[in-house]
């Protein structure tokens, strides 16, 4: 390729930084929000494995891997939320051991959190580290039997 003048190179570099910044802002805006999931899809304890126990009223199902910067922090947030409510369980699944679950629930990023109601129906879904206040509001909505778990 022919050498380009410095001003053109600087323009291209600026465009590269701008595109990367726009990508990052878009990701930040969308990450961690509670979205409506398909309630037809139901999770059972048997699907997760012998030791898994779903909550009587709701379950926070976390999908993690070992190579996941935000998974340990998310684990703490969800474990605390489950502790504060009766009948709510937190289950953390390492997808390295269960790639079938990653495919079944179309998990494209870790952590991904599924919010299950008393019957195991997937009521909400969070891609990325959940925003704690929004997650607790969605959990409260499930516990109160609300139709829509979104608060925002």
């Amino acid at each position: 390729m022919a050498d380009m003048p410095a001003w053109l190179a600087v323009t291209l570099i600026a465009a590269l930084v701008a595109v990367a910044t726009a990508t990052g802002v878009l990701w930040r805006v969308r990450a961690g929000r509670v979205r409506i999931a398909d309630p037809e899809s139901v999770v059972t304890a048997a699907l997760l494995g012998a030791d898994a126990q779903l909550g009587e009223r709701a379950t926070l199902l976390q999908f993690s891997t070992e190579f996941c910067a935000r998974c340990p922090g998310t684990h703490r947030v969800l474990a605390a939320a489950a502790r504060d409510e009766d009948g709510v369980e937190h289950v953390d699944v390492d997808l390295t051991h269960r790639p079938d679950l990653a495919r079944r629930f179309k998990v494209l990023q870790t952590p991904t959190v599924l919010l299950l109601d008393a019957g195991g129906a997937v009521r909400g879904r969070v891609g990325g580290a959940p925003r704690p206040a929004e997650l607790r509001a969605a959990l409260t909505a499930i516990l109160n039997g609300a139709d829509d778990v979104r608060t925002a």
């Binding site: 030791d51 190579f67 495919r103 494209l108």
Partner: peptide, 26 residues
């Protein structure tokens, strides 16, 4: 944003990284 984390998950999904299934717990 952790691109490596994302790629690791895609490798898991593609079946290129696999470990024996273990019971899940809280």
């Amino acid at each position: 944003y952790c691109l490596g984390c994302q790629l690791y998950l895609l490798l898991v999904r593609a079946g290129l990284i696999r470990r024996a299934p273990v019971a899940v717990g809280p």
